[in-house]
Design a protein around this nucleic acid. Structure first.
Lengths: 349, 349
DNA sequence: GTTAGCACTCGGATTAAGTGAGTGCTAACA
DNA sequence: TGTTAGCACTCACTTAATCCGAGTGCTAAC
């Protein structure tokens, strides 16, 4: 099961080569690199061994070899060199993320875009989960007219709003806002229960002279809204990147993949499946739960506030992706988000 | 220049056929339809005439004919049959648009999606222009912490928010909100000038006891924000639809097109160029200002509130698109938006 | 253990021939 | 005079045959 040092070097050379060219690599190409000082015949023998052991695969008899999923896995776990992201790229990322971004959803959206810019692959990210976000403030805002506006701000700086079909005047808005915040402020959406809303209604009924029907109408809207806010949202960036790679050079395959990426339910499942890993998670080819992804690899990272996970950012690319670069990029982005959020929330009570 | 009745019928038959099959159509195919009772030889003669007149084009000697841009133009202007959208589709659209949508941006987004669902083509739409929207209310909301939230609601139901790096307490928020609304409420963003903000500052300074520096800080943020809000935003739906059509069966072409659709500046220009038309505007092939669109057609429609244009919805598809259906769909959607917005704003003062 | 040499494999490119949809023209017909 | 049948011709596309070369596995010599 163990690989000799030489076999490892050869495997690494093959994978490095294949990642660059997307062509099956032959013994001669490796020999010519002259890093190992071995003839093609020797390499050929070693390659045959590596194939027997399952690390390499031949597309057909007279082609070179390409890495198997197991080969990639070994590469990722043991062989891969650390990738150093250029100072300029880091600077650009910092500037992009820090620059006047003080709303969490905007920050994450930018982070998702930057991930696809850095890696040149398709990225998927989930919007910050409201279920796990702590409510800072929930306002009802009176509009002159037949409706009013609900406004929710979380501690991490996420802002959501919703127009409702209920007219409230300034007094009612202020009183209801106060009642709501006395009960909900500091809770996460997941923690809020039916009885919280009952409590709000009682509070409003007892301490204000707002019409009971109006209270229950408005609080009903709030309750319904909070429920829907818990639902996950996913976004895809740069999905057309897959057209760049020879793996998808036929339109049919490409379209299948794009269709797959369009289906939010799939994406949510993917993101959930990537979630149970520490730091950067990698799924190679058939390791993915979806058949549609059997020719791609998925690299995911969580973003969190403190130790509360808010969502994930993922990169989807061909199995022969530049793992080192992708991992370094996601790592960088997640630490940046972390430090921004820390700074962003520490002023708060 | 005039086309005989028979020539028109033949041209129509050719275009109808070509729209369906995407294959050059030959004289025999038209003859076999048996609508005209003419032999293929006769049709052949007429087709030769139509080619001389510029309505048809031959890809090569021994292929059938395809319509030229001029041919399509004549078809669209004079030949095309009215398309009747199915009752179910209309119902679905109404339900989708009316159902609990009371924010303009959400409504337009849904309309854009529905346009691509109905037509099965790529759609582009501009977000409602804030520059031309009348401000209903601009609120400053106090957050417990180092920042506060700006909230803008337009008469048509567009909601925008922005976190700013300035702490205000409830008193300051209420007073500043009042001052701002006394000056800005009822104006469109385009109408607001520098002196409006000066007026707000004076007002706040004279009638409240808020610190002068804080007033100018906050109002400065508001001014800056309002300026940026004037910028156009465009969105693309279902861009992968282009992969469906044989015109883009090679990945290179498809990618070029997708890249083009990704560039928001292009899209803004496209939408602007489509704008100066009444009702539904159609640009066929080379009629478009962009070389990238020379093999596509663009159908645009404005959506407006009263007589104030807020933005556009456009369909981009192959030149052999089903014009009748696309036009009918956009027409339907724009009238629906119109009636919703009418109903939506008529309650207001 | 390493390597040179060689027969063998097989996908991809190249070429050649065949196919068929379509055209344009001509001559006959109503 | 308009319509049509007939026929030679064109040309993209398909299929088959051939060639080419990168790559392999195996063997024998170093």
């Amino acid at each position: 099961m163990d690989l000799s040092d030489r076999k490892q070097k050869i495997l690494q050379a093959i994978i490095d080569e294949y990642i660059g060219t997307a062509e099956p690599v032959g013994s001669r190409a490796i020999s010519k690199r002259n890093e190992l000082g071995l003839s093609s015949a020797t390499i050929r023998n070693e390659m045959a061994d590596l194939e027997d052991m399952g690390y390499l695969v031949k597309p057909h008899t007279s082609a070179g070899r390409i890495p198997s999923d197991i080969g990639y896995r070994f590469y990722v776990n043991s062989l891969m060199q650390r990738y150093q992201i250029s100072v300029e790229a880091v600077e650009r990322l910092k500037e992009e993320l820090f620059n006047r971004v003080n709303q969490l959803d905007v920050l994450i959206k930018k982070a998702g875009v930057m991930a696809s810019v850095l890696t040149e692959y398709t990225t998927v990210f989930t919007a910050p989960s409201l279920g796990r976000s702590v409510i800072r403030k929930l306002d009802i805002i009176s509009m002159s007219g037949a409706n009013s506006l609900l406004l929710l701000v979380t501690k991490a700086g996420l802002v959501k709003n919703k127009m409702i079909d209920a007219a409230v005047d300034d007094y009612e808005a202020a009183e209801l806002t106060a009642a709501i915040n006395r009960v909900l402020s500091g809770k996460t959406c997941d923690e809020i229960t039916e009885s919280d809303f009952e409590e709000i209604c009682e509070l409003a009924l007892r301490e204000t002279d707002i019409d009971e029907r109006k209270i229950s109408l408005v609080i009903g809207y709030v309750a319904e809204w909070i429920r829907t806010l818990g639902e996950s949202e996913v976004f895809v960036n740069n999905s057309r990147a897959i057209l760049q790679y020879p793996e998808f050079s036929n339109v049919g395959k490409a379209r299948e993949m794009l269709d797959f990426l369009e289906d939010k339910d799939n994406l949510i499942k993917i993101m959930e499946s990537g979630h149970n890993t520490e730091g950067v998670g990698i799924k190679i080819g058939a390791e993915n739960d979806f058949k549609e992804l059997e020719n791609t690899s998925l690299v995911t990272v969580d973003y969190k506030i403190g130790d509360r996970t808010l969502g994930q950012i993922a990169v989807i690319g061909p199995k022969r992706m530049n793992y080192a670069k992708v991992i370094a990029s996601l790592d960088l982005i997640s630490t940046q988000i972390d430090s921004i959020l820390k700074q962003f929330t520490e002023g708060e009570g």
